[in-house]
């Protein structure tokens, strides 16, 4: 069982982010870390391979500045090798180009029985890349996986829906996107951190993968404007006069939370 996990390296959310004035895109010139939403995918892959009894977990990523810190984190968690596609020409890539690059990276690694991605990145939120990877590779795609089981060559997924979950099956190989909280990601252990140093992490360009970067000019999507998020409004205070529970239930029902 070989699994490839697509991971994104993003600016540390703990530091104040900044937008590029001309492209409206998040600046990514500093240190990048493993997107927390991808840590779930890495953990799930490690658990599935452990259950299978054999196989490896590989990670692929795309970053314009050659940054590998986030990928090293995935390697320290237990992934066996990484492939980073780094090319200045990839700056400004839209979601489809990103998917083509990652699909080509998966192919370069020799394919996989399962490809895992997060449902969406924590900095871009397009939420379309996993399905586009599946289309590029001609594989079935299952989104919003909250529970994953592999039974022979059959993938069984509990797929999160608005009202509960669907039980979905498809054949392998396949691409899945996993939701946050699906598993509890392990910490990169100190031993894992030291071992990660010795693990292969190859860096290739878009040209090496025969993918033509679109750049800002030809991207199929553009950020036309960015506006400040509306400030959070003051909450509602319910005084408990003995009937407060009813008001809270009504409030939650109104939000369709219960």
């Amino acid at each position: 069982m070989n699994i490839v996990v697509c991971v994104k390296q993003i600016p540390d959310p703990a530091s104040p982010g900044a937008l590029d004035a001309s492209t409206h895109a998040l600046k990514r010139d500093g240190k990048l870390i493993l997107d927390e939403s991808d840590a779930y995918g890495v953990e799930m892959a490690l658990q599935l391979v452990a259950s299978a009894g054999s196989g490896e977990v590989y990670v692929v990523s795309m970053a314009p500045n050659g940054e590998t810190s986030g990928m090293r984190t995935a390697l320290a968690m237990g992934a066996a090798r990484g492939l980073l596609v780094s090319d200045p020409a990839l700056a400004g890539s839209d979601a489809l180009t990103t998917a083509k690059v990652l699909a080509a990276a998966v192919t370069k690694l020799g394919g996989a029985d399962l490809i895992i991605a997060g449902t969406e990145s924590s900095d871009g939120y397009t939420g379309t890349v996993p399905e586009q990877i599946a289309e590029c590779l001609g594989l079935p795609s299952v989104t919003f996986a909250k529970k994953v089981k592999i039974d022979g060559q059959v993938l069984k997924v509990d797929r999160q829906s608005e009202t509960g979950y669907d039980e979905v099956e498809c054949s392998l190989p396949a691409v899945i996107s996993v939701t946050a909280g699906v598993v509890e990601p392990r910490y990169p252990s100190f031993k894992g951190i030291m071992d990660a140093k010795k693990k292969p992490l190859d860096v290739v360009t878009a040209g090496d993968l025969a993918v033509t970067p679109t750049g800002w000019a030809a991207a199929g999507q553009k950020i036309v404007n960015v506006t400040q998020a509306e400030a959070r409004k003051a909450g509602t205070v319910i005084e408990d006069d003995g009937e407060a529970f009813g008001k809270i239930v009504a409030f939650l029902e109104n939000l369709k939370l219960i």
């Binding site: 590998t68 984190t73 320290a76 990169p188 100190f190 951190i193």
Partner: peptide, 15 residues
């Protein structure tokens, strides 16, 4: 080093 920074990051997360 990258490894030392990861040790720091892991410990901070853990804390």
């Amino acid at each position: 080093s990258q490894e030392q920074q990861m040790i720091v990051d892991t410990t901070r997360q853990f804390t």
